[in-house]
């Protein structure tokens, strides 16, 4: 990811390069399809800055001529598209954060996957929900029933959920975990599409060797 991004900023006019927008769109698709929260994509901040710059350029070219007006319209259209991806990406993450707030709160490993703002959001959300539950009902319950953090009360991501994925490079025979702890071998070739347990391809997804669909 880092490598791609650096390459891209230096040679922007090469359309063969994968642009930030496309990379973010892939992150958005992966995020939408995975049952777990994926690491935060820092491209969000870069793109927000780029959007700012682009809108300044549009503003500057506003009263040029008919051609410039048309180009501005196209730029505006693209900005709207990028904003849609950004919003949907962040909203998808917020949805998962709200769902798993309690779990994230107790797992510091998850903090690394969230942005600073998301961590603040998660903590505030959990505190608010806890406070609300306490005020509305738990207050009057016996003390031993007031605990909200019992292990089986915490909603956590189900990593056994099925996902659809496409293999991006030949990975050969891979051992995946099947039902009841049995393992089975699957041959993952480039461009194959599979429906598998998320757990089975989690590590490949992290390395960018598969993408979710």
């Amino acid at each position: 990811m880092e490598y791609d991004r650096e390459n891209n900023s230096t040679s922007n006019d090469d359309t063969e390069e994968i642009s930030d927008v496309i990379l973010l769109m892939k992150s958005w698709i992966n995020e939408r399809c995975s049952p777990d929260i994926l690491p935060y994509n820092n491209l969000v901040n870069d793109l927000l800055e780029q959007l700012e710059v682009q809108s300044e350029i549009i503003e500057a070219n506003k009263n040029e001529n008919v051609n410039a007006a048309f180009q501005n319209m196209l730029c505006q259209q693209e900005m709207d598209r990028v904003k849609f991806i950004l919003r949907n990406y962040l909203r998808t993450r917020l949805y998962k954060i709200e769902k798993y707030a309690n779990y994230i709160y107790h797992n510091s490993a998850y903090y690394e996957r969230l942005s600073d703002k998301e961590i603040i959001y998660c903590e505030h959300y959990k505190e608010l929900v806890d406070a609300h539950l306490f005020k509305s009902s738990l207050e009057t319950a016996p003390t031993f029933l007031q605990n909200l953090n019992e292990p089986n009360m915490i909603v956590k991501p189900v990593l056994d959920e099925p996902v659809f994925c496409r293999v991006k490079e030949d990975l050969g025979d891979v051992q995946i975990q099947g039902s009841q702890g049995t393992s089975l071998t699957v041959t993952l070739k480039k461009n194959n599409i599979f429906m598998l347990r998320y757990k089975a391809i989690e590590s490949f997804l992290e390395e960018g060797k598969v993408e979710l669909l």
């Binding site: 006019d13 359309t15 390069e17 793109l47 959007l51 051609n67 180009q71 196209l74 730029c75 693209e78």
Partner: peptide, 12 residues
């Protein structure tokens, strides 16, 4: 004819 279009995702 249209001049180069600079978009966020690339230049066309």
């Amino acid at each position: 004819r249209m001049e180069t279009l600079t978009l966020l995702e690339g230049t066309y």
